[in-house]
Design a protein around this nucleic acid. Structure first.
Length: 222
DNA sequence: CTGGGGAAGGGGCCC
DNA sequence: TGGGCCCCTTCCCCA
């Protein structure tokens, strides 16, 4: 069973921020990541924000780096950049090719891969927020949203960057932070050709004077 | 205007 | 059916 799970993760997609090694991080920092066993380098696995091009990993090693930072906040784990950008395969892309019947919401017409997903979605129509914070009273639709919210009260930051030591309460925020370590800026403005490391930066740029009032589309620098 | 981080929402999938 | 974990995305705020 454990082996099957392991194999399953082997087939999962992953991505990696390019340019990081040569342009940004300290050698020692990268070595920490290398210890995780990943053989990938920027030359062989380019991170593509459109997620159109994934490569199969040759090595299953990932997860956590050897580094451990204990800053002001309690950091449970620290993640190297290569380890961090290897997913466990539960990404939204993994089920796209299944071709299963979609489940449609009778209220809004949105479709979902599973009945469970549809059921969960329907809760957003009823506004049934049954997961309530004991501290501030704020309610959430899902338990893990409450968990993440509680970290804002406790100051817990389980996700640490193995390269700079900064810790985050949210994994996605750490992921975004990892991209700031990359010297390559994958998102390019179609009008002025300025490039940005994060898509959100580009979107903000689009809302700036450069692109105000005209059509735009996200372009990815190749 | 850009860069960065915090917080939250919601879909995919597994158990 | 629902919890839990994954992911991406967006919004907001601040330097």
């Amino acid at each position: 069973m454990i082996f099957l799970k392991f194999v399953s993760r082997l087939s999962n997609v992953f991505y990696f921020v390019t340019g990081y090694v040569d342009h940004c991080i300290t050698p020692s920092g990268y070595e920490v990541g290398k210890k995780s066993g990943s053989k990938f380098s920027s030359s062989e696995t380019d991170y593509t924000p459109t997620h159109d091009d994934y490569s199969e990993p040759d090595s299953p090693q990932s997860s956590l780096s050897a580094g451990y930072f204990s800053g002001e906040a309690a950091v449970t784990d620290s993640y190297s950049i290569d380890a961090f950008f290897i997913t466990d395969g539960r990404s939204r892309r993994s089920g796209e090719n299944r071709g299963n019947q979609r489940h449609t919401c009778s209220e809004c017409g949105k479709t979902y891969a599973t009945s469970s997903n549809l059921s969960r979605h329907k809760q957003t129509h009823t506004h049934n927020l049954k997961h309530k914070c004991d501290v501030c009273g704020k309610a959430f639709s899902r338990p893990w949203l409450l968990q993440g919210h509680m970290r804002s009260h406790t100051g817990e930051k389980p996700f640490g960057c193995a390269h700079c030591g900064k810790a985050f309460a949210d994994r996605s925020n750490l992921r975004a932070h990892m991209q700031t370590h990359s010297a390559f800026k994958h998102y390019k403005c179609k009008r002025c050709e300025k490039t940005f490391a994060l898509k959100s930066y580009l979107n903000k740029h689009y809302e700036s004077a450069c692109f105000k009032g005209s059509e735009h589309e996200c372009d990815v620098q190749s």
